[in-house]
């Protein structure tokens, strides 16, 4: 099932399918290592717009839900 990264629940694994948003937003997401094909797992979720955290490429990154909404992911079975 495909959805935005900020819609995932806790401790879910997923693979990035596609990035959206402006060129600068995409460039920043790529720089963080969030590129299509990368597997990620969610750690903590956003509450009231606070940053959410995911594990990706062996490290933990935090980003705001607005940015995470530009990352389209496919949930792993």
């Amino acid at each position: 099932m495909v959805c935005e990264l900020d819609k995932l629940t806790k401790n879910e694994n997923a693979t990035i399918v596609e990035l959206s948003g402006s060129e600068s937003v995409q460039a920043r997401l790529l720089e963080l290592g969030l590129l299509p094909g990368t597997t990620i797992s969610t750690m903590t979720l956003s509450i009231f717009g606070s940053p959410l955290t995911v594990k990706c490429r062996g490290s933990k990154i935090a980003l705001r839900p607005q940015a995470a909404a530009h990352v389209l992911v496919e949930k792993s079975a």
Binding site: R28, P51, K60, I61, A62, L63, Q66, A67
Partner: peptide
């Protein structure tokens, strides 16, 4: 409000 961006590698 909420216009800035934030991300960080822990």
């Amino acid at each position: 409000a909420n216009q800035t961006d934030f991300d960080i590698e822990l």
